[in-house]
Design a protein around this nucleic acid. Sequence first.
RNA 1: GCUGUUAUAGCUCAGUGGUAGAGCACUUCCUUGGUAAGGAAGAGGUCUCGGGUUCAAGUCCCGAUAACAGCUCCA
Length: 648
Amino acid sequence: MIKVTFPDGSVREFAEGTTGLQIAESISSRLAQEVLAVSVNDQLWDLTRPINDDCTIKLHKFDDEEGKHAFWHSSAHLLAEALQELYPGIQFGIGPAIESGFYYDVDPGEAVIKEGDLPAIESKMNELAAQKSPLVRQEISKTDALKLFGERGETYKCELISELEDGTITTYTQGSFTDLCRGPHLPNTSEIKAIKLTSVAGAYWRGNEDRKMLTRIYGISFPKKKMLDDYLVLLEEAKKRDHRKIGRELELFAFSQAVGPGLPLWLPKGTALRLRLEEFLKKIQKEFGYQQVMTPHIGQKELWITSGHYAKYGKDSFQPIKTPQEGEEFLLKPMNCPHHCEIYKVSPKSYKDLPIRYAEFGTVYRYEQSGELHGLTRVRGFTQDDAHIFCRPDQLKDEFLKVMDIIFIIFKALNFENFEAQISLRDPENKEKYIGSDENWEKAERAIVEACEEKGLPARVELGEAAFYGPKLDFMVKDAIGRRWQLGTIQVDYNLPERFDLEYMGNDNQKHRPVMIHRAPFGSMERFVAVLIEHTGGKFPLWLTPDQVVILPISEKYNDYAFELAAKFNKQDVRTIVDDRNEKIGKKIRDNELKRIPYMLIVGEKEAENGEVAVRKQGEGDKGTMKADDFSAMITAEVEEMMNSYQP
RNA sequence: GCUGUUAUAGCUCAGUGGUAGAGCACUUCCUUGGUAAGGAAGAGGUCUCGGGUUCAAGUCCCGAUAACAGCUCCA
């Protein structure tokens, strides 16, 4: 007998060789139907794999990550089996489960797989799933594995096998398809009830630009048809929230081929929104002891040679600007740090002066690869809500904590309730990729980890994701429909102070090196506005939205009253426009609902006579009539209350 | 940058070798209205750009550019 410990701590005995599935059956038949995989001593196993020792187990259904993972991984194998039948001689790369769904990278040889071929592949998958083929795990020696896949001409698989250690290799077989795979998998393919192949795209073999490009087929699958339908609805919803679409509809920003790719044009309404965000952050930063500075958009090439960026990025950047003066070269600034370092150096600094915090909404230019440009989230000219903090080493952690406070205030003000953090450290295997001493790196990495602990901020640690000059802490928010976006960033830098030879006089009358922190709570104004659009679906908070109120006269007879009110409201800082088109009221309501203006005021004979407005709230409908002055006071109070609640 | 797809009116799109179309938006007129689309008329296009095939190209072929999806990259 073996002792099995469940997640709740209870222990039960089972015969040696009992499987996860049998354990589930012993609890309830319903559980046995829904369970997909099992963790045995925190290792993910097949349900059909016999358990021979005492262990702790956890059963996984579709609603947890591990269950989904096994489900989609098996779906990838099912996709491969279907492809093998439809495209004889096809070669397989890898086919993993991903965050939502799965893919398989394949090399179809001469054949071409297009979007239009996906339905046929889907049908084949459904047909094969219905056959209830068990997925059978087999341990195999390295020699046998190389022989097996070698005979089938699977060069990609053989490459993978040759890098594995003998004795750790397993295969899974369902029907006529055998794949090299660590597992785990579903007991059989019939669990996969609803399949959608979503797209086909190219992907480099092993993610390497220099290797062959394979065909990647993406798909997603579910144990129930209804779940697939819900997922497809979510995709539709995401499409409706696309910031590129809403940005055009609400006249926030645009691109022009004449101006150039990746160079956004901010339209009046988008500019109003952005400036309001900037003012909000400036106000908070003032409270936190920041000083605004301003620097030019260009600087001498030597500035970035000093910083080290020219060596690393110079050849892939906008190229230097020449002048009539022989040998004189300027660069469009790709970041603001060197300029801020020069500001620091304008006068000698004492330890009593630190920390010094220079903030600038600094516009920078980076020559992103053409295929990388995407709406406002990835552009070639953008404005960072940048600041550089110069402090003493003993102030580092405290400054870090204060920056985190600013970021929390911003997330709260804009209703990003779900966020997480990622600590990016250097790759310990590849230390030569980074500049700076071991000692400094370790100090900085420790400060970040401790700051997160002190704030109780759960953070994922990623090795090898650090910038080349220092470790960083990035914030990811989840938007209203659950997608993750990277926004704010805080980066420690021991390197630039060194390169720019920054100093301060200590209380020991000796010169010391300050520590630098780069930070941008929004990230960039472009990216942040894009994420905010997708998060809110274009329904911005009242304090932020470009137009807060639109007045809709019932007929042209009441236009004068409408304009009078608008003028009065605007004087009171209630941002108001008038829809004076010669249209029926129903039409005006519809159009302004679609513009997501928070308040619509309908005015006709009754209202004009009594100095009233009929209030309609966007998305909520008629709210009844009130005095015009009461309405503007209400809006002013609502905005003030919001702004005051975010005082540091 | 790589692979694939796309490019027609301000927007969304139809047009599949024989002189360019719809809906919305826009302009003018009628209408002057009460909570999500009133009616009529009109204006608007070198069919992204450059080559080629053809008697004839928006349509077929090649190239460039841009956008989109994915990959790679992201100071």
